[in-house]
Computed example of a mutant assay.
Amino acid sequence: MECLLGLLKVKVVRGVNLAICDPLTQSSDPYVVLRLGQQKVKSSIKYHTINPEWNEELTLSITNMMHPVKIELFDHDTFTKDDSMGDAEFCILDFVEIAKQNLSDVPDGTVMKTIHPEKANCFAKESHITWKDGKVSQDIVLRLRNTDTGELVLHLNWVNIPGVAR
């Protein structure tokens, strides 16, 4: 059994300009699925929108920081298989490595690392891993793949588990 390193709280904030899967209404009924290893969590469905506001927090247990978080967006359909609306993924290695450090002497609001968009990631713009209010956090905008349009806005927070060594 792998050792629990901590919890990754992923706040699914919103989707921006997502694909239209329901042509009659010029909208979609999107929801988000996050996967990490064998874990799978999903958001609620937001009906009749291509710019959904979720503001939902989903939690993943981190036992291996080498695995990427994989994201899929789907359009909910009642009578047929849900349609794919794109996917993305991001690496948590830098985030977890910073979160596992003793940051008690680091000034509040310090940007610990900046991650730039590149071919190897789905970032739509640069993202900062920040130490603020006693927490490591990161705001992310991901460009969706395997679709013509759409971005997903996330906010990450790290939760240390009492009794788990840093």
Rank of each mutant, 00 (worst) to 15 (best):
F95Y: 04
H76Y: 14
D87L: 08
K113F: 00
Q101P: 00
C91R: 10
K100Y: 05
G86K: 03
V32I: 09
S43Q: 06
V96Y: 02
R35G: 03
A124K: 04
V106A: 00
C122K: 04
I92P: 00
F74Q: 01
N64T: 05
D77M: 10
M66P: 10
S27V: 07
D108L: 13
F123G: 06
T63C: 08
I62M: 06
P52M: 12
N102W: 06
G37E: 02
A99E: 04
T49L: 06
N51E: 10
F123S: 03
V41M: 05
H48D: 15
F123L: 14
D29Q: 04
K113N: 03
T80W: 09
E56W: 06
K119Y: 11
T59I: 12
S28T: 13
T114C: 04
M65W: 07
F123D: 04
F90V: 13
H116R: 15
K70Q: 12
Y47L: 15
L103M: 09
P30C: 07
N55M: 08
N64L: 03
N51C: 11
M66W: 12
Q26V: 11
L60E: 01
S104W: 03
E89A: 14
V41L: 04
L93Q: 15
Q101T: 05
G86R: 06
T63M: 05
Q26T: 14
E97C: 11
K46N: 10
C91T: 13
C91W: 08
L103Q: 06
L58A: 09
E118Y: 07
D75N: 10
K46P: 00
V32G: 01
P30T: 10
W54E: 07
M65N: 11
H116T: 15
N55T: 11
P117V: 09
E57A: 12
I50C: 08
P52N: 11
S44T: 13
K100E: 15
V33Y: 09
M65T: 08
K119R: 12
V33I: 12
